[in-house]
Nucleic acid binder design. Sequence first.
DNA 1: ACCGCTTTGTGCACCCGTTCACAAGCGGCC
DNA 2: GGCCGCTTGTGAACGGGTGCACAAAGCGGT
Lengths: 239, 239
Amino acid sequence: MPATSAAPRRRSGIPEATVARLPVYLRVLTALAESGTTTVSSDGLAAAAGVGSAKLRKDLSHLGSYGTRGVGYDVEYLVYQISRALGLTQHYTVVIVGVGNLGHALANYAGFATRGFQIAALIDADHRRVGETVNGLDIHHLDELETLVKEHEVSIGVIATPATSAQEVCDRLVACGVTSVLNFAPIVLSVPDSVDVRKVDLSIELQILAFHEQRKSTGAPGAAGVAVPDEVRTVAAAT
Amino acid sequence: MPATSAAPRRRSGIPEATVARLPVYLRVLTALAESGTTTVSSDGLAAAAGVGSAKLRKDLSHLGSYGTRGVGYDVEYLVYQISRALGLTQHYTVVIVGVGNLGHALANYAGFATRGFQIAALIDADHRRVGETVNGLDIHHLDELETLVKEHEVSIGVIATPATSAQEVCDRLVACGVTSVLNFAPIVLSVPDSVDVRKVDLSIELQILAFHEQRKSTGAPGAAGVAVPDEVRTVAAAT
DNA sequence: ACCGCTTTGTGCACCCGTTCACAAGCGGCC
DNA sequence: GGCCGCTTGTGAACGGGTGCACAAAGCGGT
């Protein structure tokens, strides 16, 4: 059965919506730290992260009271606390399955290593790619998936394969102990409830933007209720 | 400085949460159509999309009553209605800025063209890449950005540049009329309220997974048989 | 030592989204 | 033609998230 969606997982004290924002705060804070800033107010941090200051304070309050009234937050300390809350003080091992264009991009992505994620292996189904090296990482064949996952105690699998093989790869990952999956293939994966899946879908994001584009181009001042226009007015698009 | 507002956008009749799921339904439906299925029930469609059937029906009810009680939904008709609701019956032109690994992946991604998004141009700051061809598309230099955007009436910009140049590129896109931005760079972009921004952030997704991994490993070990060192028992008193 | 300024942390009310449960509606079977 | 089973569409209850507004709490200046 597909788990999916936002389950009411409250075993931890931190709301899911907050968890989703913590990495953003973390990134902004590390940038601040590198620029030499030692202290930041909730207003400042909120502005940099693109959220409201009240929301930010409430988010941080779920981790504990790590600010100083009248002053703000100590950047370095907050970085540590957020990292710990997110579990980034541990090390996670990752495999990337599918070394096409996207797989290459992922293998070269700096954001992985800098947050404690170690890429244990790149895996591809194409024998011709096996043996190649991307960003210092060897490409292994799909046959070795189980061996590699167990050997490196991989806990997170990244699927960057074509849609047709994504479910099969996912099943194999889950079967040998992977408990979290990041899926870039444009399909809905079925996994046991015990496995977390997050998906990143380029096409979906574009379509959501298209929806908002449409709203803008239809003028739409205050239409309520409404006759659904079968035809939409485009500004100047005649093909 | 206009910070990005994650405010509830209620200007259209369709809730934002529903809009985010419509592309998923659309994908499942097109797959069904290709496999020859002509009608589908809310239960069947919901299962394939990984959501609850009640939620699916409520989502679709926002578009209108396009189902037949006792029967289900006509696949082809529903595809059309969702496409129309999302604005995919219109034609959108896209530029991709930054032709690194990720840019290549995007340029080759089939999901763009198949949903009515046309890539007008690939743009990169590196002169050495200019003139190359990716997936039949020429790479132009960053200097031509304004010209290309205006000439092709681009409405959506995709930013796949390094973080350092993302804000500048974004500003230039907005300045010459782009009203929607899909950002892959790991920074928070500042844009006027009139511009929609969606971000896709690999690192953030991984960190969210890490959080859930942590929860699993600190909870009940013994599922799946992967031994994890449990040195992270720093839990403060939970009230 | 006190006062006033600043900023955090949070109680509260509101709103969006999810879920349940069921009446309404449609097709097919007898 | 009437009944029966199936499925949609939706009213209503519920829960989580957001934003407001303010009291509590430090710090610096006098």
